[in-house]
């Protein structure tokens, strides 16, 4: 049972596994990203020569939904992994609640925009 007078007290007393889940997510997504990004680097810089890297070649490759999903997975995981890491730093170093609120607000907006533009760009090809 929760006995608390303010919303913040109730929040600290209620128990939530959010931080635990993020901690597990960071470990798993980090591991997956290593392989996804290494594969991406191999395909774009080693497998393909400079003359092959044309607009039509890229469009042709991304016509395959599997490659679309591959690229979108890098986008989504990297943004979530990175923004959660940045959230850790913001919560550690930005001490007052109003400052934390606007720093996080601006940051999440930028991350949301990058994700939206990335997704639109990827699926509109």
């Amino acid at each position: 049972m929760i006995r608390a007078r303010t919303f913040m007290d109730a929040k600290t007393q209620s128990h939530s596994n959010a931080e635990l889940n993020w901690w597990i997510f960071m470990r798993i997504s980090g591991l997956i990203l290593v392989f996804l990004v290494l594969g991406h680097i191999y395909m774009t810089f080693i497998q393909v020569s400079e003359s092959d890297a044309t607009f039509t070649a890229v469009v042709g490759k991304l016509a395959n939904p599997a490659w679309k999903f591959y690229d979108w997975l890098i986008l989504a995981l990297a943004l979530m992994h990175g923004s959660n890491g940045a959230r850790y730093s913001i919560e550690d170093y930005v001490r007052t609640r109003p400052n934390r609120a606007w720093v996080k607000g601006v940051f999440y907006t930028v991350v949301g925009l990058i994700f939206a533009f990335g997704t639109i760009g990827l699926f509109s090809i």
Partner: peptide, 14 residues
């Protein structure tokens, strides 16, 4: 463990 599981507990350790 529930105290440790909070935002102020072990998850703050970097």
């Amino acid at each position: 463990l529930n105290i440790m599981n909070q935002n102020t507990g072990v998850w703050r350790c970097r």
